[in-house]
Design a protein around this nucleic acid. Structure first.
Length: 488
RNA sequence: GCCCCCAUCGUCUAGUGGCCAAGGACUCCGCCCUUUCAAGGCGGCAACAGGGAUUCGAAUUCCCUUGGGGGCACCA
């Protein structure tokens, strides 16, 4: 079996220092799509090495975000903090092999040298003074228990690789600094921990944000020093806010959870994120998750940073609201309906078919789940408020409106069966007999039934509401209108 | 300052030397459909950053400039 034929192993490795950010979610998505498309494994590693900033709450938020999006991972979650011994051992291995050296310079000393270099407009680079220490001197300081870090010695030459999205990237090693791999407290620095873990986890494709490009040559050097096979690297472009700057809190919602609570569908989020930095080619845009898996190839990956456009996300959500089968959509909507106090679970279960028909009716003119809930009120509540603007526009003369609605009510009382066809026939008939345009009947009726000027087709509304509720609603409206007429 | 990456409509993008007087989508604006609003259909506005070079021919290749982004820790 050749390398390329072996099932790839990828990982998403967030540090638990906040919520799951949309940028992180997209990185996770691309890793996941690549793994799923190629029959590989998608692993999750929590990089909790920074004890000060890492929290369990953040770890939970990452799990929740991933689960909501449906980005399931294979094998057990790996916690970087658990592999401290291996990290340390790897550092020691390089030290023993002479590929790294002990450095006794203190952070304070280094800071002074850095400042001096900056003041003289020079680029600071560690001058390797500790690498020149004689064995005796090293032993002497060790005996004195002087604190030391382990530094990796950058070899001569050039470090380059074929990036899956950028093609060839090369760094002259002279521009690389002898970086620390093990702190004086014997804990590993990021680059060591990552490489050590990726080797241990058998990661074959490292796909991450392109803010890691400058870490890559250092990591490649570590792979070599540790005698490990190199993975394939893929550096994804960043996501920016509408102002072209790196996406941050200032740009509004950036946590995946925010969108969940705004009534977005995870599939829409995934679809939108996928299109930020990737294209299946051609005109393809709206895709189901299986379609994205099918179509995903690194060839469609973009090099340029993309700007997060909430407007398009909303549109995308509307598209997914339409294409998602009702049975799959319902579990996302129902909790919102329940939370809004429109109905209880038992009621919805008892009227399942009716409920699905209603959702089908409302989702057409919705872009978020919240839009559906907002429109759903009139079909559940015994009484509603009449929107002042709708009233002003369609019930200009309260007296006349009340009379009209009374006639409508009378007409509707005997319609049989209570279906769109017959309802349309009688209502149009009524308008004709009154000598007015059909719309002059429909609009006032719409306000009476929904309290709004906007709703699905009036006959659909009547059917969805049912005769009893519809007539009660019209009765409410005429009462309201008579009171309004009297108080004039 | 040094290193690296990037560059097609306002935004997401198609485009891998001729099929491009640059296509699709979002946004915005018209029109159609219509009982309202959506959805849908049709149409409009709108881009190859600039300059060289290669070539019969360049959005597509190369170089420079400009502009944007990222990185330069005993953070991840």
């Amino acid at each position: 079996m050749t390398d390329s034929a072996r099932p790839p192993r990828l990982r998403f490795a967030p540090s638990p220092t906040g919520y799951l950010h949309v940028g992180g979610a997209r990185t996770a998505l691309f890793n996941w799509l690549y793994a799923r498309h190629n029959g590989g494994k998608f692993l999750l590693r929590i990089e909790d090495t920074d004890k000060l900033r890492s929290t369990d709450e953040s770890t939970r938020a990452i799990f929740e975000g991933m689960e909501w999006l449906g980005l399931d991972w294979d094998e057990d979650v790996v916690y970087q903090g658990a592999s401290l011994e291996r990290h340390r051992a790897d550092a020691m291995r390089m030290l023993d092999a002479g590929l790294a050296y002990r450095c006794f310079c203190t952070p304070e000393e280094l800071e002074v040298r850095r400042k001096t270099a900056a003041a003289g407009h020079e680029t600071f680079k560690y001058d390797r003074r500790c690498d020149r220490l004689l064995p005796d001197e090293v032993q002497e300081r060790l005996d004195r228990s002087d604190a030391f870090v382990v530094r990796f010695r950058i070899p001569e030459g050039t470090t380059e690789w074929d990036d899956l999205v950028h093609e060839r990237i090369a760094f002259p090693n002279k521009d690389l600094d002898d970086f620390v791999i093990l702190r004086s407290n014997a804990t590993p620095i990021y680059n060591l921990a990552v490489v050590s873990d990726d080797i241990a986890m058998g990661v074959t494709v490292v796909m991450r944000g392109d803010d890691h490009i400058s870490n890559t040559p250092k990591q490649i050097l570590l792979y070599r020093a540790l005698g490990a096979e190199l993975p394939t690297f893929a550096h994804l472009p960043m996501i920016h806010g509408m102002d072209g700057k790196k996406l941050s809190k200032r740009h509004g919602a950036t946590a995946v959870g925010d969108y969940q609570h705004q009534g977005l569908l995870p599939t829409a989020m995934l679809n939108f994120l996928a299109l930020l930095g990737w294209s299946p080619g051609g005109d393809r845009e709206v895709m189901t998750v299986p379609e994205m898996i099918e179509l995903f190839t690194p060839a469609g990956l973009q090099k340029k940073a993309a700007i997060f456009d909430p407007k398009k996300l909303e549109w995308m959500n509307g598209q997914h609201l339409s294409i998602t089968p009702l049975a799959e959509l319902e579990p996302y909507v129902t909790p919102a309906i329940l939370a809004a106090g429109l109905a209880d679970e038992a009621t919805l279960a008892a009227r399942r078919e009716w409920y699905f028909d209603l959702l089908d009716l409302l989702r057409v003119r919705s872009r978020t789940i919240d839009d559906i809930v907002r429109q759903a009120g009139p079909y559940f509540l015994p009484h509603i408020d009449f929107d002042p603007e709708a009233v002003a526009r369609n019930w200009k003369d309260p007296e006349a409106a009340a009379d009209l609605l009374a006639k409508v009510s009378q007409t509707l009382a005997s319609v049989d069966p209570w279906e769109p066809g017959p309802l349309e026939t009688v209502l149009r008939g009524l308008a004709e007999s009154l000598g007015i345009a059909a719309g002059k009947v429909f609009q006032p009726l719409r306000v009476a039934l929904t309290g709004l000027t906007v709703s699905p087709g009036i006959f659909e509304v009547l059917v969805a509401m049912g005769r009893d509720l519809a007539l009660a609603r019209i009765s409410d409206a005429t009462d309201w209108l008579r009171r309004a007429a009297d108080s004039k």
